[in-house]
């Protein structure tokens, strides 16, 4: 009964032209060909996709969630990056 661990793949699907591929889940498959076929059967039974990417899970480098405070702090403190930071006189109208 001991089956060797079958590699894990992350599946990304592009739902409509113009939208980016989006992560939808993962699956096990021996190689990339089988992973693509399994992804089609598991994640696109109702026409959810026009294009599929499969990526070996262990090829992904991820940020560490426990360090998210430090990681994203530079964006938190820079409110001047948002348009609402700037005052435009009312009489100028929509800008």
């Amino acid at each position: 009964m001991a089956t060797p661990n079958v590699p894990l793949w992350e599946v990304f699907i592009r739902s409509r032209n113009g939208l980016a591929h989006k992560h939808v889940g993962s699956l096990h498959a021996a190689d990339s060909t089988l992973a693509l076929q399994a992804a089609r059967d598991i994640y696109t039974r109702r026409g959810e996709g026009l294009s599929i990417w499969v990526v070996p899970s262990n090829a992904i480098t991820a940020s560490d969630p426990s360090e998210k405070g430090m990681m994203f702090e530079p964006a938190e403190s820079k409110i001047y990056r948002h348009p609402t930071f700037y005052d435009v006189p009312d009489e100028v109208g929509h800008m």
Partner: peptide, 16 residues
């Protein structure tokens, strides 16, 4: 089903 499918899983891994 699990036992009779074992050769398919093994063959796929061996081919890869």
């Amino acid at each position: 089903a699990h036992e009779e499918g074992a050769w398919v899983r093994e063959a796929a891994m061996a081919y890869a």
